[in-house]
Amino acid sequence: MKNARDNQLTDRRSAAAEAKAAQLEAFRAARAASEPAQAARQAERAAISAAREERRLERDRIKQEEQARIASEAAEREAAAQAEARAETEAREIAEKARVARVIEDEAARKAERDLRYAARKARRG
């Protein structure tokens, strides 16, 4: 009886070893067969990654152009506002100078009238 058990154990062991070897061989064959497909998938992933990076760079470039355009428009608006403020200040100064000149002219005209009245009064008395 002992012999029968040993045979069964050795049979099982050898069957297990053969199954393991067959699985290992099948794995190696599957890996070798999938090697070209894996290379193709890897190349496809690389192409997708490159396209994604290119799109990201394009988005960044567009964003930078948009920011530059916004900055230049803001600078133009600021320059226009400064020019408008400068023109308004100059107009106020011109108006103030004109008002001062009118006041001086009016004062000179009143003085001239007063002098004429004074001279006429002197001429009547004299």
Rank of each mutant, 00 (worst) to 15 (best):
M1L: 12
M1T: 15
K2Q: 15
K2E: 15
N3L: 12
A4L: 12
A4H: 01
R5V: 06
R5W: 04
N7H: 11
Q8K: 13
L9G: 02
T10Y: 13
D11R: 09
R12D: 12
R13F: 15
A19V: 01
A22F: 00
Q23H: 14
Q23I: 11
E25R: 08
A26W: 03
R28F: 06
A30S: 10
S34T: 06
E35S: 08
A40P: 03
A40H: 10
R41P: 03
R41Y: 06
R41L: 13
A43M: 02
A43W: 04
A47C: 03
A51Y: 00
A51M: 05
R52L: 09
R55L: 15
E58L: 13
R59N: 14
D60Y: 00
D60H: 01
R61G: 07
K63G: 01
E65V: 00
E65W: 05
E65K: 03
Q67F: 08
Q67A: 13
A68N: 14
S72F: 04
A74L: 14
A74M: 10
A75R: 07
E76S: 13
E78S: 10
E78Y: 06
E78P: 01
A79M: 03
A79V: 05
A83M: 04
A85D: 06
R86Q: 08
A87V: 02
E88W: 01
A91Q: 09
R92D: 07
E93M: 07
E93A: 13
I94K: 13
A95H: 08
A95T: 06
R99D: 06
R99A: 15
R99G: 00
A101W: 01
R102I: 04
V103K: 11
V103W: 09
I104S: 07
E105K: 14
D106V: 02
E107G: 04
A108W: 14
K111H: 09
A112V: 02
A112K: 03
R114S: 10
D115C: 07
Y118T: 07
A119P: 00
A119E: 08
A120S: 12
A123R: 14
G126C: 09
